[in-house]
Write a protein that binds this DNA or RNA. Structure first.
Lengths: 235, 235
DNA sequence: TGAATACAAATTGTATGCAAACTAACGTCG
DNA sequence: CGACGTTAGTTTGCATACAATTTGTATTCA
């Protein structure tokens, strides 16, 4: 095959972490994983080191590796930090993108659109991830990229939690997100930094609103008697 | 000793890279280094992977590790990105610092002041590095910290290049920088975010001006004849 | 019963030997 | 003479065995 077993292990673990297939805080046992991927512990440990560097995984001495947790504190800083970094990266991407990168982005976006059409939740989230990762590469700023990538890791994981229960209203939002991606591609092609920032902030708002709606859903009726009555009437 | 050989190897390599004792682009040979630090290649490779995650080192498959380079492009993005990240981190640090962190910072600053008094260039740069690293920890923002730390790596390395030729004017600037550190500690203690941002931008200006002065020194007289004449008169 | 300790099992960390990949020098062929 | 292919030599990558550390459990003694 084209990719080695180690390469596959790296990208597979990363995907499974992003897709919340392996939960935050979950223990990553070296012996089990190395057997599972058919490699010895030495290269597996290298993979874990790599993922630690990316921010997917945390390691403590003599106590192994865990999937990076997502506690309330980090979520708070996530919402605090994301718009600023996203916006700055967006402007730089418009200024510095190359033609090849733009082609790659179009490719990824068409994949994302296909996933949206097929309502494939995991592929949507992963495609979205790759889309924004590529915009990060376009920015060509080695100092901002690590922050962006860490934000994207948690953004994708949050999206998995929030988007899974695909209510009809949600699928409309997803299609809107896909349209925003298309608009971004136009802005990037025209190298319009200001427009790109605007679109990015709108994109963020859409995503944030959906997360908020999930965290704080419409409350149940306050009056329990009325609720019971309504249920009976509905029969 | 308190720290294991591996731990020592990690921090020693990091220090030597920050101090430009090992130059950007230099090859990091596994066999040589493992022998040098008295550990086998396995833990040494782990150290290199760790440093790669931090951004000090770059690794390419089957071709070993090198010290992260500092080309013109990265320097450009450095000057572009640093003030914004520094300022944002500064405000967050003022808001979120704990008493323990403040004590640690005072400790580091007194070490820095001692190094300034002794004109110990490497210790100054390293102390300054630790000072700003601690401010990053105070900000308690897992998304911003990686960007800050990458900026600090290159800032410290640049400082090594620029500050080494210790002209009298430079030592005045260093003392001013130390005073700015003291002012920052006061601002952090009072949790005055706005003041902290102001001080940080001043601190940045001082540093940037010194770098600029190094890159673009006063030009020689344009008229070569005049220059020769002036030299003769000076005798 | 509860705390402390000693022992056993599991897991991580390190060393070493061997396989694979890359580098460079040499010789052959067009 | 230059380009290409071949072959030593060096360097990185991987697997396995062993050492060290942590965790869980049982047993003893107050």
């Amino acid at each position: 095959m084209d990719t080695s077993k180690k390469q596959y292990c790296l990208s597979d673990l990363r995907q499974r972490i992003l897709a919340m297939d392996i939960r935050p805080g979950a223990d990553l046992d070296e012996a089990r994983l190395s057997a599972q991927y058919g490699i010895s512990r030495t290269p597996l440990r290298e993979v874990l080191q790599r993922l630690t560097g990316e921010g997917c995984v945390t390691q403590t001495d003599n106590r192994g590796a865990k999937v990076a947790s997502m506690d309330l504190g980090t979520m708070r800083t996530f919402f605090q930090t994301a718009p600023s970094i996203y916006a700055n990266v967006a402007r730089l991407a418009a200024e510095n993108r190359t033609a090849e990168q733009l082609d790659a982005l179009k490719e990824v976006q068409s994949g994302f659109a296909r996933a949206v059409a097929a309502s494939a939740a995991a592929e949507m989230a992963l495609g979205n991830h790759r889309f924004h990762e590529l915009i990060g590469e376009m920015a060509a700023n080695a100092y901002l990229t690590p922050s962006l990538n860490r934000l994207l890791i948690d953004h994708t994981r949050l999206a998995q939690v929030f988007y899974r229960p695909a209510a009809p209203a949600e699928s409309i939002a997803v299609r809107k997100a896909s349209e925003q991606h298309d608009a971004m591609i136009v802005a990037l092609e025209a190298q319009e930094g200001g427009l790109m920032v605007e679109l990015t902030l709108e994109h963020w708002s859409l995503s944030r609103d959906r997360m908020e709606r999930f965290v704080r859903p419409d409350p149940l009726p306050a009056n329990v008697a009325d609720l019971a009555e309504a249920k009976i009437r509905a029969l």
